[in-house]
Simulated assay, not measured.
Amino acid sequence: MSIDPSSIPNFGGQPEPQEAGPNGPVIPDQELVKQLLDQMELKHVVDDEGDLAAPWEEFRTYFMFRGEEEQQVFSVRTFYDRPHTLESKPQLLELTDDWNRRTLWPKVYSHTNDDGSVRLIGEAQMLIGTGVSLEHFVSSTVSWVRASIEFDKWLAEQLGLEASIEGKPGDDEAPSAE
């Protein structure tokens, strides 16, 4: 299966009209996601656990397939690397609650590490085990990546931090799954 380049929304602006995909549903896999990331001109790596990731300077976005056959789920999970203090967690929770109320994705939650630092994680999922339209898969994945970038920019703005995200993957080493 192959992605028609004209069916990929313009990553830097408004989505372009999409042509009809193949007849019937497809079951996406890691190779299809790699092809999509290549066409979006996004750097990507496969980590030691076999998960596909796109690293940026301040976060890493993973493209994971979990589950068996009809229950298989495609998950786009972003680990935001900017550490926050435990004392700032109430403010972070207020901000993430506001984001989660106002947007569809990614849904963002906090994780407190053993050292007391707080990190944020964004996630969007799609059930793919019975198949999905290629057009829906491509447009959803592109939208989720864009929204992950936008969340980081929005959070930096809300916290008064200098946003370091330029919308392009960084030159980080291969990330490891958390």
Score class of each variant (00 low, 15 high):
121 I>F: 09
129 G>R: 04
147 A>C: 10
119 R>K: 15
110 S>E: 14
155 L>M: 14
60 R>Y: 14
23 N>C: 08
117 S>M: 14
175 P>A: 15
57 E>G: 06
169 P>G: 12
106 P>M: 14
96 T>N: 00
8 I>M: 04
72 Q>K: 11
124 A>T: 07
109 Y>C: 04
174 A>I: 15
144 W>Q: 06
40 M>V: 06
31 E>K: 13
161 L>I: 09
53 A>D: 01
24 G>H: 04
114 D>E: 15
121 I>R: 03
177 A>S: 14
68 E>H: 12
4 D>L: 13
9 P>C: 12
144 W>D: 07
12 G>S: 05
145 V>D: 04
141 T>Q: 00
103 T>C: 12
170 G>F: 01
62 Y>Q: 08
83 P>L: 15
16 E>M: 13
149 I>D: 12
1 M>Q: 11
137 F>C: 01
36 L>Q: 00
95 L>W: 06
58 E>K: 06
98 D>E: 15
21 G>T: 04
77 R>S: 11
105 W>F: 14
16 E>Y: 02
92 L>I: 04
145 V>P: 00
13 G>F: 12
170 G>I: 05
48 D>W: 04
3 I>T: 02
84 H>G: 10
86 L>F: 15
171 D>C: 07
91 Q>M: 15
121 I>C: 09
50 G>A: 11
64 M>P: 01
158 Q>D: 08
58 E>F: 05
40 M>C: 09
26 V>C: 08
22 P>E: 15
33 V>K: 02
32 L>Q: 02
25 P>F: 12
32 L>K: 00
49 E>M: 15
151 F>N: 00
166 E>I: 12
176 S>A: 15
40 M>A: 09
40 M>E: 03
171 D>E: 15
91 Q>H: 14
87 E>G: 05
42 L>H: 02
168 K>R: 03
108 V>Q: 01
87 E>Q: 09
142 V>Q: 05
149 I>W: 06
138 V>L: 06
22 P>I: 13
44 H>E: 11
54 A>K: 00
68 E>A: 15
46 V>Y: 05
122 G>Y: 01
178 E>K: 09
67 G>D: 08
129 G>T: 10
116 G>P: 01
58 E>C: 10
164 S>W: 08
24 G>S: 04
163 A>I: 13
124 A>M: 11
